[in-house]
Design a protein around this nucleic acid. Structure first.
Lengths: 232, 232, 232, 232
DNA sequence: GATGAATGAGCATTCATTCAT
DNA sequence: TATGAATGAATGCTCATTCAT
């Protein structure tokens, strides 16, 4: 009410009670409870009571932080997406050896996407996408789509360097991604596979996928350079 | 339990009334109603009343034929799977021109899998897969998996004929399928795409996919034959 | 199940279970429970659970018979209105002695409108009219308004017979009704009076009200006839 | 309880901070917020949060000044009553031309009582009267009843002057008031009329009402004087 | 064996009230 | 003393399931 101290900064460090719906700790607590319940049961089957119990906050409090069930779910997915796709594309930022980069990136991508946690999250989004299509769309747009764009950029760079020749880069990027996941995504999401593929399996798939990709799109120059560096 | 006594109701013209939950006509009738409702609304949003109405049978009767909503859904999916993947693989049965066959098969596959109806069904299965993992597994196993096996056979035939050279045929088959769907499956299932891709788009993707596949795995012999038939 | 007997008539007398939402006994039971609760607590404060308990039927059943709380309340009011205003206007149907008829009618009207039960019902409607104005409007329209129209007809008859002379018959009818209730309605509805006025009190008020009304609107002819019949 | 100690907070410039729930300024502020919300939404639909916002005080503070929602509402009605009926009866204080005075008073009364705001307030009181009968009673007693007494006084004055002859003055006063409202009150309170009647309509009703009243109760002397002043 | 009326636990959401700060 | 974040009982309503007919 009076004179906040002079060193009051961008971060409000006062120990005072945070404003309604503003306490990030409580927010995180709710999201964490929601994660457990939504991931475990799916959107429809999850009840706000379950979340209340799991989060250890009262019903009313949840509704202070989130307008309704749908918005809470969206917030969770937003978080989840952030976590999932974080750092996934860094390896594409510094252009070095083409094949190695593609393998490294493809491996990281496949591991992430087929990890148990991420598969469950994706299943939940897919299940909810039926009733809230925008939600699924938003998830795709800000997750996989963004990644796709990064791949396109990277491929363009390789084309500029004369290492690749791709008639339709956009399509090429999709092909690359799919080759890295060959079969895994569908197997996981339909729970035909009940646990994530091993690193070895993924590496085998990705190596082969990259091989196919490069055989199709690699230029003479690329193969010449590869032979040269191999004999070196 | 089967033969009801001779004084069986005059109205029942079939040979003896079937035991409770045993009449296959009624069963089909229920499944048909369930199909319309589940596909239209998804598992959670579908109400047993809707199904009752759509199937034209009473609530009680449904519960004689199926333990509960979940079991009815499972039965439907079992059926649906059969319908979806039926005839999809016929084109692979008669080996003719390799590239043309692959394109034709790939196109049919992509159209089917990305059709609104099938995407809906898959979304529902995925959504439910979390709670009933066997359901998703069974769906995959008897649907996509069986198709995959057909592709493997076909590729083996092509290898036998010296047209392809594939180190890991199983993996190659996955790669082929994924190349035909490049990006579409994920876009559809997350409802980033809200309607099925056009035939033209699919054809473009499949043509490119087959091209990549053949560049990677086609033998000298294959390309020689292709050049020959082209110049003919 | 087949062949309802030949004498099946307009009234379905079968003892079979009535269709959903069609059993008039159950309907009456629900309405009766609703009456007790709504009248006791008012629209908002009455809970569907209370009504469930009071009516001795399950929640679901109420919702089979009535779309929602509001509609249940409307149905109750509809009934209530019917009960309240039934037979109230019969006395106006056979034109006899003017003054006597007016007194008789006015007395009946006042007794009805100020009876504890009716006052409570009106209070409930008024309380609800705030949130559901159409409801109050409908109550007025089909209750008091209809009565008002009957009074207008009656007064027109009297005018035609040369017994009354009223510049604005519509207004005259309102004046008559208000004179019969002089003060009572407001006193009752605000619960300034906690019990219904006595018959004696009402008779006194009505007699006086009719007197005022006739002094204002009675014709020479009317008074002449009255004098004549008095001296007879 | 009143005198807080000398070291009272520097910020409080008033003579000692009032004891909890004792500051009349804050009390008025709360009542004012409550007025806006209760009148706008009715008792049930008004939320304490709305009032908090409208009054600009905290939830806790309201609960220091008023035990609960009901009590706050009661306090408001107490106030409101004062406001509504204030100045309504001034016109009766100076006896001048009888007919004109009655018309003027009747018009003012009808306009007030049928104004949207006042109807709203009355509806709310009526709605609540069932649960808190004393509230309605007190409202009537200190509002309409007090007005009624003023009318009685005025009529007695007119009787004393030989202008009126009324066997039962108390009843006459009720009759007069009702004649001025002929039909309007019930129409408004049941929301059959959704907006207040026009000044013209009220004037017509009141003029007619006063006419009826005077025809019934006016003395020879009154009519003689009126004829005289008319011909003057 | 079939029916569909009835059930009541369950849902998402609101809001009067409390109490730590 | 004043605050407003947190509470959780209560709301209207739905729907999978049961069981008397």
């Amino acid at each position: 009410m009076v004179d906040t101290t002079a060193d009051s900064d961008l971060l409000d460090l006062r120990k005072g009670r945070p404003a309604a719906g503003q306490d990030p700790v409580k927010r995180a607590q709710i999201i964490e409870g929601a994660r457990r319940v939504f991931i475990d049961k799916g959107f429809e089957a999850a009840s706000m009571n379950d979340i209340t119990r799991e989060a250890g906050v009262s019903k009313g409090t949840i509704y202070v932080y989130f307008e309704n069930k749908e918005e809470l779910f969206e917030a969770l997915i937003e978080e989840e997406r952030g976590t999932i796709f974080k750092n996934m594309y860094e390896v594409l930022d510094h252009f070095e050896d083409l094949r190695k980069t593609l393998v490294k990136f493809g491996t990281g991508l496949s591991i992430k996407i087929t990890s148990a946690k991420v598969i469950q999250a994706q299943r939940t989004v897919v299940g909810a996408a039926d009733r809230i299509p925008e939600l699924g769309a938003r998830f795709y747009e800000r997750g996989p789509k963004r990644g796709h764009d990064k791949v396109v950029s990277f491929l363009n760079e390789a084309i500029a360097r004369g290492l690749l020749e791709i008639p339709d880069v956009d399509l090429g990027a999709y092909q690359f991604t799919e080759l890295c996941l060959a079969g895994l995504f569908r197997q996981c999401i339909f729970s035909y596979r009940t646990k994530a593929p091993s690193q070895a399996e993924i590496e085998k798939i990705v190596t082969s996928g990259v091989d196919v990709f490069l055989k199709a799109y690699g230029t003479e120059k690329f193969f010449a350079e590869e032979r040269a560096s191999a004999s070196a």
